[in-house]
Design a protein around this nucleic acid. Sequence first.
RNA 1: UGCCGGGUCGUCUAAUGGUAGGACAGCGGCCUUUGGAGCCGUAUGCGGAGGUUCGAAUCCUCCCCCGGCAG
Length: 357
Amino acid sequence: MKIAVLLSGGVDSSVALRLLKEQGHDITAFYLKIWLQEEYSFLGDCPWEEDLEYARAVCAQADVPLQVIPLQDEYWDRVVSYTIKEIKDGRTPNPDMFCNSLVKFGAFLDKIDPSYEKVASGHYATIEEKNNRFYLKRSPDAVKDQTYFLAYLKQEQLARALFPIGIYEKKQVRQLAKEFDLPNQVRKDSQGICFLGKIKFKDFVKEHLGELPGDIVNFETMKKVGTHPGYYYYTIGQREGIGLNAGPWYVVRKDIVNNIIYISQKKDVIAAYRNEFNVTKINWLNEIPESGSALHVKIRHGAHRYPCAIEYTDANLLSVKLQGSDKGIAAGQFAVFYDGDYCLGGGIISDSITVES
RNA sequence: UGCCGGGUCGUCUAAUGGUAGGACAGCGGCCUUUGGAGCCGUAUGCGGAGGUUCGAAUCCUCCCCCGGCAG
């Protein structure tokens, strides 16, 4: 089979490449230039050259051709501009969601020869084919599972995707890397927003939006207790950057119009925690679950899933009731639904509601 | 200016003659392909000058500063 492999220079995609190579496929590796670190180099070190070096080394060792595809413009248009707009609107974006759906499995597909039957990546997720439909399933490694970030793919994208390491746990992938004697076998896992690398999110925000001083108000007393550099530096549930003593303090509400951050203490569960929210712009990978379905939901990437019940308010709005509560539910974040190991799809959180206990 | 009260890490607060400790903030690390959260680890302080004492944040004197009551 003719396969395009997305190679990042990290361990996971390198192992994926070697697995496919061993299976005898006709593969070509592609390194996507999506880093905007050249623009942000003054903010910190940029490791992207190192990524490319490793990608080259891996390909040389495996005797696989490597192509470098510049996608910075597409990345800017589809991911970075969205990120900045959302932050400015006081919401909390998830750029990596669109990095997958609009760039890696989006713009990239338009750039390559259609004769590539599959596009493989190093994601921790599995795909099951049933009756000509493709279903996304969780990785056996609950921590590394990346179905959350893939929930916004379309059926056509899923049909063409291949996740060779999806059946493994991280430690097995590390072991395979060792057995393949990969040049990057001990490289640290990447983390953070992919286009920022080591750049701090706060610095990115500052570069694009500057500072806009406003009041910090105690949510219980409604009294001003301090000042902050701008509402867009804060998200719901955030502790860091408040700078007040006698805490810890957590952001519980933002007033964008008046540029006010409301804070509370952790022990104030009612003010700080949320357990009900609405979801819009939903993408279902396959069948649409019925109103009243008992599912699981992830509010963020990670192992934790909440049992939940869903209810359609109308065709485009889904009401979600969590079994449990989460103090970091923020508008703009994604909610991704699961039925057992099947990832059903997800949508964007539009608001959250405090429910009295 | 004739009267009281008070000055301890960045902030808040302990130690009342016997090694200045904690919390929060900060910083560093871990975790995590989003934001956050969480976990671990850390620097920094007795307003100043004298005095009493084996020993002073603590007791005494003076000075400086900040509140408040007098004006």
